[in-house]
Design a protein around this nucleic acid. Structure first.
Lengths: 156, 156
DNA sequence: TGCCTCATGTCAACATCCTGACATATGGTC
DNA sequence: GACCATATGTCAGGATGTTGACATGAGGCA
């Protein structure tokens, strides 16, 4: 009988299984998107821009869970590849609204099928009701984590 | 009525919500572990070593979902901090079995409480049965993703 | 108007992680 | 014993991401 010191089996922690699925998903998406000359963050950015054209760099960064700086170089690469375009100067404020080019839309359409196939393979064992429940649980888990108790801001 | 081109709401994709929870969880853990002078990957490594003492660098890397190289520098840092120790030479083969020091165990015990608090906050809205179902779903999702169709290995 | 706060874009320095490569040790097969 | 496949630890290079900092523009308020 092997005993553990904490009395908690890490494999039964939601946090661990969450990390495990996410690693597997990221790996599968990287492999699939490589055929379309895209990385997973780049695909996420294109998907965001397709849903809500004109998003700024900072808004895209928040939507893709990266920093503004990371999204900035990512956008520069997509711009060099001709998949997105930004105006040279800001129409108002400092935000530069980004939009997909025709080629960007085409590349996204080609990649989306492969990504959706992975999503379906991942959730194949769930029926519609179970999938809805799972989505609801995941959303509530995020909400529970995001109302921070004390963000440790500066208190001068 | 705003319409989307793909007909798929990204917010209702399990993959997106998965990424969202994981980002929030990672952020919460980083903030909590900073008080113990630990990073999230470092904590994962200590937890693995507590459960299964004597794990090698490569085994730890697989368990923490990083590469051997990353785990190597991570272990070096933990070694410099006096939390783990490795023999100078391999007792057999090339694998260097890593073990926790007394200070490593103490640091882990101190940090574990905070991490478990986050886990409980995240899953507070789930009863035991729902948590079991969720864990089962996550495990099956990982399994579904890991039987790769064609890893695109070299075929000379 | 002036001042303050906030958000944005961008630069530099640093840390982290990965890909590719190599030498070494083990186990299996002939 | 000789050979080969596999696994491990390690090194070098580069790509990617982050923290910290700064200047600019918008909006609120006295």
């Amino acid at each position: 009988m092997r005993q553990v010191s904490s009395g908690v089996d890490p494999g039964r922690l939601v946090g661990y299984q969450l990390k495990r699925v996410q690693a597997a998903l990221r790996s599968a998406m990287d492999a699939a998107l490589r055929r379309h000359d895209l990385t997973t963050p780049q695909y996420a950015c294109l998907e965001l821009l397709d849903q809500r054209p004109g998003l700024s760099n900072a808004e895209l960064a928040r939507g893709a869970f990266v920093t503004r700086q990371s999204m900035n170089v990512l956008l520069r690469n997509l711009e060099d590849a001709g998949l997105v375009e930004r105006p040279a100067s800001a129409p108002q404020g400092r935000a530069l609204p980004t939009t997909l080019t025709a080629e960007g839309r085409a590349r996204l359409a080609a990649a989306r099928g492969d990504v959706l196939t992975i999503e379906q393979r991942m959730t194949a064992h769930l029926d519609a009701e179970q999938a809805d429940l799972l989505l609801g649980h995941l959303e509530r888990m995020t909400d529970a984590l995001e109302d921070r108790p004390s963000p440790v801001r500066r208190q001068r």
